[in-house]
Design a protein around this nucleic acid. Sequence first.
DNA 1: TGTATATTGGAATTTTTATTCCATTTTTGT
DNA 2: ACAAAAATGGAATAAAAATTCCAATATACA
Lengths: 286, 286
Amino acid sequence: METEDSMGAEAMVTEAPDDYDGLRMLLLSRRESMPKRLKQLAAFALEHPEDVAFGTVAGIAEHAGVQPSTLVRFAKSLGYDGFSHLQQIFRDRLRERFPDYRERLRGLRDAGGHHVHAVSLLEGFTNAAAVSLERMRASVRPEELSRAIETLAKADTVYLLGARRVFPVIAYCAYAFGKLGIRAILIDHVGQLGPEQLAIATKRDAVLAISFTPYAPVTADLAAAAAQRDVPVVAITDSAFSPLVTNADVWLEVAEADFGAFRSLSASFALAMALAVGTAEKRAEG
Amino acid sequence: METEDSMGAEAMVTEAPDDYDGLRMLLLSRRESMPKRLKQLAAFALEHPEDVAFGTVAGIAEHAGVQPSTLVRFAKSLGYDGFSHLQQIFRDRLRERFPDYRERLRGLRDAGGHHVHAVSLLEGFTNAAAVSLERMRASVRPEELSRAIETLAKADTVYLLGARRVFPVIAYCAYAFGKLGIRAILIDHVGQLGPEQLAIATKRDAVLAISFTPYAPVTADLAAAAAQRDVPVVAITDSAFSPLVTNADVWLEVAEADFGAFRSLSASFALAMALAVGTAEKRAEG
DNA sequence: TGTATATTGGAATTTTTATTCCATTTTTGT
DNA sequence: ACAAAAATGGAATAAAAATTCCAATATACA
Protein backbone atom coordinates (compact mmCIF):
# COMPACT_ATOMS: atom_id res chain seq x y z
CA MET A 1 0.00 0.00 0.00
CA GLU A 2 1.21 3.41 -0.86
CA THR A 3 2.48 5.64 1.88
CA GLU A 4 2.06 9.35 1.90
CA ASP A 5 5.73 9.82 1.25
CA SER A 6 5.85 7.73 -1.83
CA MET A 7 3.18 9.76 -3.51
CA GLY A 8 5.54 12.58 -4.26
CA ALA A 9 4.35 15.44 -6.37
CA GLU A 10 1.02 13.90 -7.22
CA ALA A 11 0.14 13.75 -3.58
CA MET A 12 -3.02 15.42 -2.63
CA VAL A 13 -4.40 17.11 0.28
CA THR A 14 -7.60 16.31 2.02
CA GLU A 15 -9.83 18.35 -0.29
CA ALA A 16 -11.56 17.26 -3.51
CA PRO A 17 -14.83 19.17 -3.45
CA ASP A 18 -17.81 17.23 -4.66
CA ASP A 19 -19.70 20.05 -6.20
CA TYR A 20 -18.90 22.65 -8.78
CA ASP A 21 -19.02 25.62 -6.46
CA GLY A 22 -16.63 24.01 -4.08
CA LEU A 23 -14.30 23.15 -6.90
CA ARG A 24 -14.47 26.64 -8.20
CA MET A 25 -13.58 28.00 -4.80
CA LEU A 26 -10.68 25.63 -4.46
CA LEU A 27 -9.36 26.64 -7.86
CA LEU A 28 -9.60 30.27 -6.90
CA SER A 29 -7.74 29.80 -3.66
CA ARG A 30 -4.98 27.78 -5.27
CA ARG A 31 -4.61 29.98 -8.29
CA GLU A 32 -1.47 31.71 -7.11
CA SER A 33 0.45 28.66 -6.16
CA MET A 34 -0.19 26.55 -9.22
CA PRO A 35 2.45 25.70 -11.80
CA LYS A 36 2.02 27.05 -15.28
CA ARG A 37 0.20 24.23 -17.03
CA LEU A 38 -2.09 23.49 -14.16
CA LYS A 39 -3.00 27.13 -13.83
CA GLN A 40 -3.68 27.16 -17.54
CA LEU A 41 -6.01 24.23 -17.12
CA ALA A 42 -7.76 25.77 -14.17
CA ALA A 43 -8.46 28.87 -16.21
CA PHE A 44 -9.66 26.79 -19.11
CA ALA A 45 -11.93 24.70 -16.94
CA LEU A 46 -13.62 27.71 -15.43
CA GLU A 47 -14.01 29.35 -18.79
CA HIS A 48 -15.27 26.30 -20.64
CA PRO A 49 -16.97 24.09 -18.10
CA GLU A 50 -19.10 22.54 -20.79
CA ASP A 51 -16.15 21.39 -22.78
CA VAL A 52 -14.75 19.74 -19.70
CA ALA A 53 -18.07 18.09 -19.00
CA PHE A 54 -18.38 16.55 -22.44
CA GLY A 55 -14.92 16.24 -23.84
CA THR A 56 -12.43 13.42 -23.79
CA VAL A 57 -9.05 13.77 -22.21
CA ALA A 58 -7.38 14.04 -25.58
CA GLY A 59 -9.87 16.56 -26.91
CA ILE A 60 -9.79 18.83 -23.91
CA ALA A 61 -6.03 18.64 -23.72
CA GLU A 62 -5.73 19.84 -27.27
CA HIS A 63 -8.23 22.59 -26.77
CA ALA A 64 -6.51 23.81 -23.66
CA GLY A 65 -3.06 23.44 -25.15
CA VAL A 66 -1.67 20.87 -22.74
CA GLN A 67 -0.80 17.19 -22.76
CA PRO A 68 -3.38 14.56 -21.86
CA SER A 69 -1.36 13.49 -18.89
CA THR A 70 -1.54 17.01 -17.53
CA LEU A 71 -5.28 16.63 -17.20
CA VAL A 72 -4.89 13.60 -15.04
CA ARG A 73 -2.23 15.32 -12.96
CA PHE A 74 -4.48 18.30 -12.59
CA ALA A 75 -7.32 16.18 -11.29
CA LYS A 76 -5.08 14.36 -8.88
CA SER A 77 -3.49 17.52 -7.58
CA LEU A 78 -6.97 18.60 -6.57
CA GLY A 79 -7.56 15.39 -4.72
CA TYR A 80 -9.59 13.42 -7.24
CA ASP A 81 -8.90 9.84 -8.28
CA GLY A 82 -8.29 10.86 -11.85
CA PHE A 83 -9.71 12.91 -14.65
CA SER A 84 -12.91 10.94 -14.85
CA HIS A 85 -13.68 11.71 -11.26
CA LEU A 86 -13.12 15.40 -11.82
CA GLN A 87 -15.22 15.33 -14.95
CA GLN A 88 -18.09 13.98 -12.93
CA ILE A 89 -18.25 17.26 -11.02
CA PHE A 90 -18.64 19.16 -14.24
CA ARG A 91 -21.31 16.82 -15.48
CA ASP A 92 -23.32 16.95 -12.32
CA ARG A 93 -23.43 20.66 -12.63
CA LEU A 94 -24.96 20.52 -16.08
CA ARG A 95 -27.50 18.00 -15.05
CA GLU A 96 -29.14 20.06 -12.43
CA ARG A 97 -29.02 23.45 -13.90
CA PHE A 98 -32.13 24.55 -15.60
CA PRO A 99 -33.65 26.70 -12.97
CA ASP A 100 -35.60 29.35 -14.71
CA TYR A 101 -34.36 32.81 -14.03
CA ARG A 102 -37.76 33.93 -12.85
CA GLU A 103 -37.31 31.30 -10.23
CA ARG A 104 -34.02 32.89 -9.28
CA LEU A 105 -35.60 36.26 -8.86
CA ARG A 106 -38.41 34.92 -6.77
CA GLY A 107 -35.95 33.04 -4.61
CA LEU A 108 -34.02 36.20 -3.99
CA ARG A 109 -37.09 38.16 -3.14
CA ASP A 110 -38.24 35.51 -0.69
CA ALA A 111 -34.87 35.48 0.94
CA GLY A 112 -35.47 39.16 1.56
CA GLY A 113 -32.27 40.11 -0.16
CA HIS A 114 -31.72 43.72 -1.05
CA HIS A 115 -29.85 42.59 -4.13
CA VAL A 116 -33.06 42.05 -5.98
CA HIS A 117 -33.08 45.36 -7.62
CA ALA A 118 -29.61 45.05 -9.04
CA VAL A 119 -30.49 41.69 -10.49
CA SER A 120 -33.73 42.87 -11.96
CA LEU A 121 -31.91 45.67 -13.73
CA LEU A 122 -29.58 43.12 -15.19
CA GLU A 123 -32.49 40.95 -16.19
CA GLY A 124 -34.08 43.92 -17.88
CA PHE A 125 -31.07 44.67 -20.01
CA THR A 126 -30.44 41.04 -20.72
CA ASN A 127 -33.96 40.71 -21.85
CA ALA A 128 -33.86 43.77 -24.06
CA ALA A 129 -30.77 42.33 -25.72
CA ALA A 130 -32.42 38.99 -26.31
CA VAL A 131 -35.49 40.63 -27.77
CA SER A 132 -33.39 42.71 -30.13
CA LEU A 133 -31.58 39.66 -31.37
CA GLU A 134 -34.76 37.76 -31.91
CA ARG A 135 -36.30 40.63 -33.82
CA MET A 136 -33.37 41.00 -36.09
CA ARG A 137 -33.42 37.31 -36.78
CA ALA A 138 -36.90 37.70 -38.11
CA SER A 139 -36.43 40.95 -39.98
CA VAL A 140 -33.11 40.93 -41.77
CA ARG A 141 -33.39 40.52 -45.50
CA PRO A 142 -30.84 38.03 -46.76
CA GLU A 143 -30.29 39.63 -50.15
CA GLU A 144 -29.60 43.02 -48.63
CA LEU A 145 -27.12 41.48 -46.28
CA SER A 146 -25.38 39.82 -49.20
CA ARG A 147 -25.28 43.06 -51.14
CA ALA A 148 -23.80 44.88 -48.18
CA ILE A 149 -21.08 42.27 -47.89
CA GLU A 150 -20.34 42.46 -51.60
CA THR A 151 -20.03 46.22 -51.45
CA LEU A 152 -17.60 46.06 -48.58
CA ALA A 153 -15.64 43.24 -50.15
CA LYS A 154 -15.02 45.26 -53.29
CA ALA A 155 -13.75 48.24 -51.36
CA ASP A 156 -10.10 49.07 -51.11
CA THR A 157 -10.46 50.62 -47.69
CA VAL A 158 -13.52 50.70 -45.46
CA TYR A 159 -14.24 53.96 -43.63
CA LEU A 160 -16.12 53.48 -40.39
CA LEU A 161 -18.62 56.08 -39.40
CA GLY A 162 -20.67 56.24 -36.22
CA ALA A 163 -21.08 58.63 -33.33
CA ARG A 164 -22.37 58.87 -29.80
CA ARG A 165 -24.56 55.92 -28.90
CA VAL A 166 -23.35 53.72 -31.74
CA PHE A 167 -19.72 54.67 -31.54
CA PRO A 168 -18.96 51.44 -29.65
CA VAL A 169 -20.23 49.40 -32.57
CA ILE A 170 -18.08 51.15 -35.08
CA ALA A 171 -15.09 51.01 -32.74
CA TYR A 172 -15.56 47.28 -32.57
CA CYS A 173 -15.69 47.13 -36.35
CA ALA A 174 -12.29 48.79 -36.42
CA TYR A 175 -11.00 46.00 -34.21
CA ALA A 176 -12.65 43.23 -36.19
CA PHE A 177 -11.71 44.47 -39.64
CA GLY A 178 -8.14 44.88 -38.49
CA LYS A 179 -8.04 41.36 -37.13
CA LEU A 180 -9.38 40.09 -40.41
CA GLY A 181 -6.79 41.90 -42.44
CA ILE A 182 -9.19 44.35 -44.04
CA ARG A 183 -7.97 47.90 -44.31
CA ALA A 184 -10.38 50.00 -42.30
CA ILE A 185 -10.22 53.50 -40.93
CA LEU A 186 -12.17 54.59 -37.92
CA ILE A 187 -13.49 58.09 -38.40
CA ASP A 188 -13.34 59.19 -34.80
CA HIS A 189 -13.76 62.85 -35.60
CA VAL A 190 -11.12 63.89 -33.06
CA GLY A 191 -10.63 67.58 -33.11
CA GLN A 192 -13.57 67.81 -35.49
CA LEU A 193 -11.35 66.41 -38.18
CA GLY A 194 -13.97 64.02 -39.51
CA PRO A 195 -14.24 65.66 -42.94
CA GLU A 196 -10.49 65.52 -43.36
CA GLN A 197 -10.31 61.91 -42.23
CA LEU A 198 -12.88 61.01 -44.85
CA ALA A 199 -11.52 63.28 -47.57
CA ILE A 200 -9.19 60.65 -48.92
CA ALA A 201 -11.94 58.12 -49.62
CA THR A 202 -12.49 57.39 -53.30
CA LYS A 203 -15.11 55.50 -55.25
CA ARG A 204 -12.97 52.42 -54.95
CA ASP A 205 -13.41 52.51 -51.16
CA ALA A 206 -16.59 52.21 -49.10
CA VAL A 207 -18.18 53.76 -46.06
CA LEU A 208 -19.90 51.74 -43.36
CA ALA A 209 -22.14 54.13 -41.47
CA ILE A 210 -24.33 53.49 -38.45
CA SER A 211 -26.88 55.80 -36.95
CA PHE A 212 -30.00 55.46 -34.81
CA THR A 213 -32.54 58.01 -33.58
CA PRO A 214 -31.88 60.66 -32.56
CA TYR A 215 -29.59 60.72 -35.56
CA ALA A 216 -26.29 62.41 -34.86
CA PRO A 217 -25.98 65.03 -37.57
CA VAL A 218 -22.26 64.42 -38.11
CA THR A 219 -22.86 60.89 -39.25
CA ALA A 220 -25.47 61.84 -41.79
CA ASP A 221 -23.44 64.80 -43.02
CA LEU A 222 -20.25 62.86 -43.46
CA ALA A 223 -22.06 60.01 -45.17
CA ALA A 224 -23.75 62.47 -47.52
CA ALA A 225 -20.43 64.08 -48.36
CA ALA A 226 -18.94 60.71 -49.18
CA ALA A 227 -21.90 59.69 -51.31
CA GLN A 228 -21.59 62.98 -53.17
CA ARG A 229 -18.14 61.91 -54.26
CA ASP A 230 -19.45 58.48 -55.36
CA VAL A 231 -18.01 56.56 -52.44
CA PRO A 232 -20.32 53.56 -51.92
CA VAL A 233 -22.18 53.76 -48.61
CA VAL A 234 -23.46 50.82 -46.57
CA ALA A 235 -25.74 51.92 -43.75
CA ILE A 236 -27.11 50.30 -40.63
CA THR A 237 -30.00 52.24 -39.21
CA ASP A 238 -33.31 51.89 -37.46
CA SER A 239 -35.87 53.09 -39.92
CA ALA A 240 -36.55 53.96 -43.52
CA PHE A 241 -36.81 57.56 -42.47
CA SER A 242 -33.27 57.81 -41.30
CA PRO A 243 -31.22 60.50 -43.02
CA LEU A 244 -28.70 57.79 -43.84
CA VAL A 245 -31.08 55.97 -46.13
CA THR A 246 -31.08 58.70 -48.75
CA ASN A 247 -27.38 58.43 -49.29
CA ALA A 248 -26.91 54.74 -48.86
CA ASP A 249 -26.33 52.24 -51.64
CA VAL A 250 -27.39 49.42 -49.35
CA TRP A 251 -29.02 49.75 -45.98
CA LEU A 252 -29.91 47.30 -43.27
CA GLU A 253 -32.60 47.84 -40.71
CA VAL A 254 -32.09 47.02 -37.07
CA ALA A 255 -34.66 47.79 -34.43
CA GLU A 256 -33.10 47.53 -31.00
CA ALA A 257 -35.31 47.06 -27.98
CA ASP A 258 -34.88 49.28 -24.94
CA PHE A 259 -35.06 48.99 -21.22
CA GLY A 260 -35.57 52.17 -19.31
CA ALA A 261 -33.86 54.96 -21.12
CA PHE A 262 -31.27 52.75 -22.77
CA ARG A 263 -31.33 50.81 -25.97
CA SER A 264 -29.55 47.58 -26.49
CA LEU A 265 -26.77 47.35 -29.05
CA SER A 266 -26.62 43.58 -29.23
CA ALA A 267 -28.28 43.16 -32.58
CA SER A 268 -26.13 45.86 -34.12
CA PHE A 269 -23.02 44.14 -32.87
CA ALA A 270 -24.07 40.80 -34.23
CA LEU A 271 -24.87 42.37 -37.58
CA ALA A 272 -21.60 44.28 -37.69
CA MET A 273 -19.64 41.15 -36.95
CA ALA A 274 -21.46 39.21 -39.63
CA LEU A 275 -20.62 41.97 -42.09
CA ALA A 276 -16.98 41.94 -41.10
CA VAL A 277 -16.50 38.20 -41.30
CA GLY A 278 -18.64 37.93 -44.41
CA THR A 279 -16.50 40.55 -46.10
CA ALA A 280 -13.30 38.77 -45.18
CA GLU A 281 -14.60 35.48 -46.52
CA LYS A 282 -15.87 37.00 -49.72
CA ARG A 283 -12.45 38.49 -50.33
CA ALA A 284 -10.73 35.23 -49.57
CA GLU A 285 -12.80 33.36 -52.10
CA GLY A 286 -11.96 35.82 -54.83
CA MET B 1 -18.91 -3.51 -49.67
CA GLU B 2 -22.18 -4.03 -47.95
CA THR B 3 -25.31 -4.29 -50.03
CA GLU B 4 -28.67 -3.13 -48.93
CA ASP B 5 -29.86 -6.68 -48.59
CA SER B 6 -27.16 -7.71 -46.25
CA MET B 7 -28.05 -4.99 -43.83
CA GLY B 8 -31.17 -6.79 -42.74
CA ALA B 9 -32.89 -5.54 -39.66
CA GLU B 10 -30.30 -2.91 -38.88
CA ALA B 11 -31.04 -1.14 -42.11
CA MET B 12 -31.96 2.41 -41.77
CA VAL B 13 -33.98 4.92 -43.45
CA THR B 14 -32.85 8.24 -44.72
CA GLU B 15 -33.50 10.15 -41.49
CA ALA B 16 -31.23 10.67 -38.51
CA PRO B 17 -32.17 14.10 -37.21
CA ASP B 18 -29.26 16.20 -36.06
CA ASP B 19 -31.01 18.05 -33.31
CA TYR B 20 -32.96 17.03 -30.29
CA ASP B 21 -36.30 18.33 -31.46
CA GLY B 22 -36.08 16.44 -34.68
CA LEU B 23 -35.14 13.31 -32.86
CA ARG B 24 -37.97 13.74 -30.45
CA MET B 25 -40.39 14.08 -33.29
CA LEU B 26 -39.06 11.03 -35.04
CA LEU B 27 -39.32 8.99 -31.87
CA LEU B 28 -42.89 10.06 -31.32
CA SER B 29 -43.91 9.26 -34.86
CA ARG B 30 -42.29 5.84 -34.78
CA ARG B 31 -43.50 4.92 -31.36
CA GLU B 32 -46.29 2.69 -32.57
CA SER B 33 -44.29 0.68 -35.00
CA MET B 34 -41.33 -0.06 -32.78
CA PRO B 35 -40.54 -3.46 -31.33
CA LYS B 36 -40.79 -3.84 -27.61
CA ARG B 37 -37.26 -3.13 -26.46
CA LEU B 38 -36.74 -0.26 -28.81
CA LYS B 39 -39.98 1.32 -27.74
CA GLN B 40 -38.88 0.93 -24.17
CA LEU B 41 -35.66 2.72 -24.99
CA ALA B 42 -37.41 5.49 -26.84
CA ALA B 43 -39.56 6.13 -23.82
CA PHE B 44 -36.56 6.05 -21.55
CA ALA B 45 -34.60 8.44 -23.72
CA LEU B 46 -37.38 11.00 -23.80
CA GLU B 47 -37.91 10.72 -20.09
CA HIS B 48 -34.28 10.84 -19.10
CA PRO B 49 -32.44 12.73 -21.78
CA GLU B 50 -29.75 13.73 -19.35
CA ASP B 51 -28.97 10.17 -18.46
CA VAL B 52 -28.56 9.42 -22.12
CA ALA B 53 -26.32 12.44 -22.54
CA PHE B 54 -23.97 11.45 -19.75
CA GLY B 55 -24.21 7.74 -19.34
CA THR B 56 -22.26 4.85 -20.80
CA VAL B 57 -23.85 2.18 -22.92
CA ALA B 58 -23.69 -0.31 -20.08
CA GLY B 59 -25.05 2.12 -17.52
CA ILE B 60 -27.95 3.32 -19.61
CA ALA B 61 -28.79 -0.21 -20.68
CA GLU B 62 -29.07 -1.31 -17.10
CA HIS B 63 -31.09 1.73 -16.15
CA ALA B 64 -33.48 1.21 -19.00
CA GLY B 65 -33.65 -2.54 -18.52
CA VAL B 66 -32.22 -3.61 -21.86
CA GLN B 67 -29.03 -5.11 -23.19
CA PRO B 68 -26.13 -2.92 -24.27
CA SER B 69 -26.42 -4.17 -27.80
CA THR B 70 -29.98 -2.94 -27.90
CA LEU B 71 -28.75 0.60 -27.50
CA VAL B 72 -26.56 0.31 -30.53
CA ARG B 73 -29.36 -1.25 -32.50
CA PHE B 74 -31.67 1.50 -31.38
CA ALA B 75 -29.30 4.18 -32.61
CA LYS B 76 -28.79 2.46 -35.92
CA SER B 77 -32.47 1.91 -36.48
CA LEU B 78 -32.85 5.68 -36.28
CA GLY B 79 -30.19 6.20 -38.87
CA TYR B 80 -27.19 7.03 -36.72
CA ASP B 81 -23.76 5.44 -37.05
CA GLY B 82 -23.93 4.01 -33.58
CA PHE B 83 -24.77 4.89 -30.05
CA SER B 84 -22.05 7.50 -29.75
CA HIS B 85 -23.51 9.41 -32.63
CA LEU B 86 -26.93 9.38 -31.10
CA GLN B 87 -25.54 10.45 -27.76
CA GLN B 88 -24.02 13.49 -29.39
CA ILE B 89 -27.50 14.80 -30.10
CA PHE B 90 -28.36 14.58 -26.44
CA ARG B 91 -25.16 16.31 -25.45
CA ASP B 92 -25.53 19.14 -27.89
CA ARG B 93 -28.87 19.90 -26.41
CA LEU B 94 -27.39 20.41 -22.99
CA ARG B 95 -24.52 22.47 -24.24
CA GLU B 96 -26.39 25.35 -25.68
CA ARG B 97 -30.00 25.86 -25.14
CA PHE B 98 -30.55 27.44 -28.50
CA PRO B 99 -30.48 24.72 -31.11
CA ASP B 100 -33.37 26.33 -32.93
CA TYR B 101 -31.21 28.42 -35.19
CA ARG B 102 -29.98 25.36 -36.98
CA GLU B 103 -33.57 24.75 -37.86
CA ARG B 104 -33.90 28.17 -39.39
CA LEU B 105 -30.76 27.72 -41.37
CA ARG B 106 -31.87 24.43 -42.76
CA GLY B 107 -35.11 26.06 -43.85
CA LEU B 108 -33.22 28.73 -45.75
CA ARG B 109 -30.94 26.21 -47.36
CA ASP B 110 -33.86 24.15 -48.57
CA ALA B 111 -35.36 27.24 -50.09
CA GLY B 112 -32.25 27.31 -52.25
CA GLY B 113 -31.12 30.87 -51.58
CA HIS B 114 -27.50 31.75 -52.28
CA HIS B 115 -27.59 34.31 -49.49
CA VAL B 116 -27.54 31.49 -47.03
CA HIS B 117 -23.98 31.97 -46.04
CA ALA B 118 -24.38 35.59 -45.09
CA VAL B 119 -27.42 34.72 -43.04
CA SER B 120 -25.72 31.82 -41.38
CA LEU B 121 -22.95 34.11 -40.23
CA LEU B 122 -25.52 36.41 -38.76
CA GLU B 123 -27.29 33.52 -37.11
CA GLY B 124 -24.00 32.38 -35.65
CA PHE B 125 -23.25 35.71 -34.05
CA THR B 126 -26.82 36.15 -32.92
CA ASN B 127 -26.68 32.78 -31.32
CA ALA B 128 -23.39 33.43 -29.59
CA ALA B 129 -24.89 36.60 -28.16
CA ALA B 130 -27.97 34.80 -26.92
CA VAL B 131 -25.90 32.06 -25.34
CA SER B 132 -23.73 34.63 -23.58
CA LEU B 133 -26.75 36.37 -22.16
CA GLU B 134 -28.27 33.16 -20.95
CA ARG B 135 -25.05 32.10 -19.30
CA MET B 136 -24.63 35.34 -17.49
CA ARG B 137 -28.16 35.11 -16.25
CA ALA B 138 -27.25 31.87 -14.57
CA SER B 139 -23.87 32.84 -13.26
CA VAL B 140 -23.93 36.38 -11.94
CA ARG B 141 -23.76 36.59 -8.19
CA PRO B 142 -26.28 39.12 -6.91
CA GLU B 143 -24.32 40.24 -3.90
CA GLU B 144 -21.25 40.95 -5.99
CA LEU B 145 -23.34 42.97 -8.39
CA SER B 146 -24.73 44.98 -5.49
CA ARG B 147 -21.30 45.55 -4.07
CA ALA B 148 -20.06 46.74 -7.43
CA ILE B 149 -22.91 49.20 -7.66
CA GLU B 150 -22.30 50.45 -4.13
CA THR B 151 -18.65 51.00 -4.85
CA LEU B 152 -19.40 52.99 -7.95
CA ALA B 153 -22.17 54.94 -6.25
CA LYS B 154 -19.81 56.11 -3.52
CA ALA B 155 -17.25 57.33 -6.00
CA ASP B 156 -16.80 60.93 -6.81
CA THR B 157 -15.69 60.24 -10.35
CA VAL B 158 -15.65 56.92 -12.18
CA TYR B 159 -12.60 56.18 -14.33
CA LEU B 160 -13.31 53.86 -17.21
CA LEU B 161 -10.66 51.43 -18.24
CA GLY B 162 -10.73 48.99 -21.14
CA ALA B 163 -8.68 48.33 -24.25
CA ARG B 164 -8.83 46.58 -27.58
CA ARG B 165 -11.67 44.10 -27.77
CA VAL B 166 -13.55 45.54 -24.83
CA PHE B 167 -12.94 49.17 -25.61
CA PRO B 168 -16.44 49.44 -27.10
CA VAL B 169 -17.98 48.45 -23.80
CA ILE B 170 -16.12 51.03 -21.86
CA ALA B 171 -16.82 53.65 -24.50
CA TYR B 172 -20.48 52.93 -24.09
CA CYS B 173 -20.13 53.30 -20.35
CA ALA B 174 -18.78 56.78 -20.93
CA TYR B 175 -21.92 57.58 -22.88
CA ALA B 176 -24.29 56.02 -20.36
CA PHE B 177 -22.69 57.49 -17.24
CA GLY B 178 -22.71 60.89 -18.86
CA LYS B 179 -26.39 60.61 -19.73
CA LEU B 180 -27.13 59.61 -16.16
CA GLY B 181 -25.29 62.57 -14.71
CA ILE B 182 -22.48 60.54 -13.21
CA ARG B 183 -19.05 62.04 -13.58
CA ALA B 184 -17.03 59.55 -15.56
CA ILE B 185 -13.75 59.77 -17.42
CA LEU B 186 -12.89 57.51 -20.29
CA ILE B 187 -9.25 56.51 -20.11
CA ASP B 188 -8.65 56.24 -23.82
CA HIS B 189 -4.90 56.18 -23.46
CA VAL B 190 -4.42 58.53 -26.43
CA GLY B 191 -0.77 59.23 -26.95
CA GLN B 192 -0.02 56.67 -24.26
CA LEU B 193 -1.25 59.15 -21.69
CA GLY B 194 -3.24 56.58 -19.74
CA PRO B 195 -1.16 56.86 -16.57
CA GLU B 196 -1.55 60.62 -16.59
CA GLN B 197 -5.26 60.41 -17.27
CA LEU B 198 -5.61 58.17 -14.24
CA ALA B 199 -3.14 60.04 -12.06
CA ILE B 200 -5.75 62.38 -10.64
CA ALA B 201 -7.93 59.56 -9.29
CA THR B 202 -8.09 59.43 -5.50
CA LYS B 203 -9.47 56.97 -3.00
CA ARG B 204 -12.74 58.86 -3.13
CA ASP B 205 -13.12 57.92 -6.82
CA ALA B 206 -13.40 54.49 -8.40
CA VAL B 207 -12.12 52.61 -11.44
CA LEU B 208 -14.33 50.42 -13.59
CA ALA B 209 -12.01 48.12 -15.51
CA ILE B 210 -12.84 45.51 -18.11
CA SER B 211 -10.54 42.91 -19.59
CA PHE B 212 -10.91 39.53 -21.27
CA THR B 213 -8.39 37.00 -22.52
CA PRO B 214 -5.92 37.68 -23.97
CA TYR B 215 -5.67 40.35 -21.31
CA ALA B 216 -4.34 43.64 -22.61
CA PRO B 217 -1.44 44.49 -20.34
CA VAL B 218 -2.27 48.21 -20.19
CA THR B 219 -5.56 47.55 -18.52
CA ALA B 220 -4.08 45.37 -15.81
CA ASP B 221 -1.17 47.74 -15.28
CA LEU B 222 -3.30 50.82 -14.98
CA ALA B 223 -5.75 49.08 -12.67
CA ALA B 224 -2.88 47.87 -10.50
CA ALA B 225 -1.44 51.38 -10.33
CA ALA B 226 -4.80 52.72 -9.23
CA ALA B 227 -5.28 50.02 -6.64
CA GLN B 228 -1.82 50.82 -5.32
CA ARG B 229 -3.02 54.29 -4.52
CA ASP B 230 -6.14 52.91 -2.80
CA VAL B 231 -8.54 53.80 -5.55
CA PRO B 232 -11.35 51.25 -5.37
CA VAL B 233 -11.43 49.00 -8.43
CA VAL B 234 -14.48 47.28 -9.87
CA ALA B 235 -13.58 44.72 -12.52
CA ILE B 236 -15.48 42.85 -15.18
CA THR B 237 -13.52 39.93 -16.51
CA ASP B 238 -13.84 36.42 -17.82
CA SER B 239 -12.11 34.27 -15.29
CA ALA B 240 -10.74 34.18 -11.83
CA PHE B 241 -7.29 34.02 -13.32
CA SER B 242 -7.50 37.38 -14.93
CA PRO B 243 -4.76 39.74 -13.82
CA LEU B 244 -7.52 42.19 -12.92
CA VAL B 245 -8.82 40.02 -10.14
CA THR B 246 -5.79 40.50 -7.94
CA ASN B 247 -6.27 44.23 -7.79
CA ALA B 248 -10.02 44.42 -7.76
CA ASP B 249 -12.15 45.20 -4.73
CA VAL B 250 -15.14 43.67 -6.47
CA TRP B 251 -15.12 41.64 -9.63
CA LEU B 252 -17.84 40.24 -11.83
CA GLU B 253 -17.41 37.28 -14.07
CA VAL B 254 -18.75 37.21 -17.61
CA ALA B 255 -18.03 34.32 -19.93
CA GLU B 256 -18.92 35.36 -23.44
CA ALA B 257 -19.57 32.73 -26.08
CA ASP B 258 -17.80 32.92 -29.37
CA PHE B 259 -18.54 32.22 -32.99
CA GLY B 260 -15.60 31.66 -35.22
CA ALA B 261 -12.75 33.78 -34.03
CA PHE B 262 -14.94 36.43 -32.45
CA ARG B 263 -16.46 36.66 -29.03
CA SER B 264 -19.73 38.27 -28.30
CA LEU B 265 -19.87 41.37 -26.12
CA SER B 266 -23.58 41.26 -25.43
CA ALA B 267 -23.42 40.05 -21.88
CA SER B 268 -20.75 42.58 -21.03
CA PHE B 269 -22.90 45.36 -22.41
CA ALA B 270 -25.93 44.28 -20.47
CA LEU B 271 -23.87 44.07 -17.31
CA ALA B 272 -22.27 47.45 -17.88
CA MET B 273 -25.64 49.05 -18.42
CA ALA B 274 -27.03 47.48 -15.28
CA LEU B 275 -24.07 48.86 -13.36
CA ALA B 276 -24.57 52.31 -14.80
CA VAL B 277 -28.28 52.55 -14.12
CA GLY B 278 -27.92 50.83 -10.76
CA THR B 279 -25.30 53.36 -9.75
CA ALA B 280 -27.46 56.25 -10.79
CA GLU B 281 -30.43 54.95 -8.83
CA LYS B 282 -28.40 54.22 -5.74
CA ARG B 283 -27.15 57.81 -5.76
CA ALA B 284 -30.62 59.16 -6.25
CA GLU B 285 -31.98 57.31 -3.27
CA GLY B 286 -29.35 58.58 -0.90
C1' DT C 1 26.56 28.53 -11.13
C1' DG C 2 25.60 24.04 -10.03
C1' DT C 3 22.59 20.80 -7.87
C1' DA C 4 18.26 19.18 -6.16
C1' DT C 5 13.44 19.38 -6.97
C1' DA C 6 9.42 20.19 -9.43
C1' DT C 7 7.13 20.21 -13.76
C1' DT C 8 6.22 18.79 -18.26
C1' DG C 9 5.81 16.10 -22.71
C1' DG C 10 4.92 12.05 -24.88
C1' DA C 11 4.95 7.13 -25.67
C1' DA C 12 3.40 2.74 -23.63
C1' DT C 13 -0.01 0.46 -21.06
C1' DT C 14 -4.22 -0.55 -18.88
C1' DT C 15 -8.89 0.12 -18.38
C1' DT C 16 -13.17 1.29 -19.92
C1' DT C 17 -16.58 1.49 -23.37
C1' DA C 18 -18.79 0.69 -27.76
C1' DT C 19 -19.70 -2.52 -31.24
C1' DT C 20 -20.25 -6.89 -33.56
C1' DC C 21 -21.73 -11.45 -34.03
C1' DC C 22 -24.40 -15.39 -33.48
C1' DA C 23 -27.32 -18.65 -31.06
C1' DT C 24 -31.92 -18.39 -29.04
C1' DT C 25 -36.46 -16.66 -28.53
C1' DT C 26 -40.40 -14.28 -30.03
C1' DT C 27 -43.46 -12.60 -33.41
C1' DT C 28 -45.85 -12.60 -37.94
C1' DG C 29 -48.27 -14.36 -41.70
C1' DT C 30 -50.49 -18.25 -43.79
C1' DA D 1 -49.69 -24.86 -35.98
C1' DC D 2 -45.74 -24.20 -38.98
C1' DA D 3 -42.28 -21.87 -41.41
C1' DA D 4 -39.97 -17.54 -42.19
C1' DA D 5 -38.62 -13.25 -40.47
C1' DA D 6 -37.65 -10.21 -36.85
C1' DA D 7 -36.05 -9.25 -32.36
C1' DT D 8 -33.34 -10.19 -28.43
C1' DG D 9 -29.66 -11.56 -25.06
C1' DG D 10 -25.20 -12.10 -24.09
C1' DA D 11 -20.51 -13.29 -24.89
C1' DA D 12 -16.51 -11.99 -27.87
C1' DT D 13 -14.12 -8.43 -30.09
C1' DA D 14 -12.65 -4.00 -31.49
C1' DA D 15 -12.11 0.74 -30.56
C1' DA D 16 -11.44 4.53 -27.74
C1' DA D 17 -10.18 6.57 -23.74
C1' DA D 18 -7.83 7.22 -19.39
C1' DT D 19 -3.88 6.48 -16.86
C1' DT D 20 0.91 5.47 -15.87
C1' DC D 21 5.64 5.92 -16.34
C1' DC D 22 9.92 7.79 -17.50
C1' DA D 23 13.04 10.80 -19.84
C1' DA D 24 13.66 15.70 -20.79
C1' DT D 25 13.16 20.31 -19.25
C1' DA D 26 12.48 24.04 -16.31
C1' DT D 27 12.61 26.14 -11.78
C1' DA D 28 14.14 27.08 -7.19
C1' DC D 29 17.57 27.25 -3.92
C1' DA D 30 22.11 27.20 -1.91
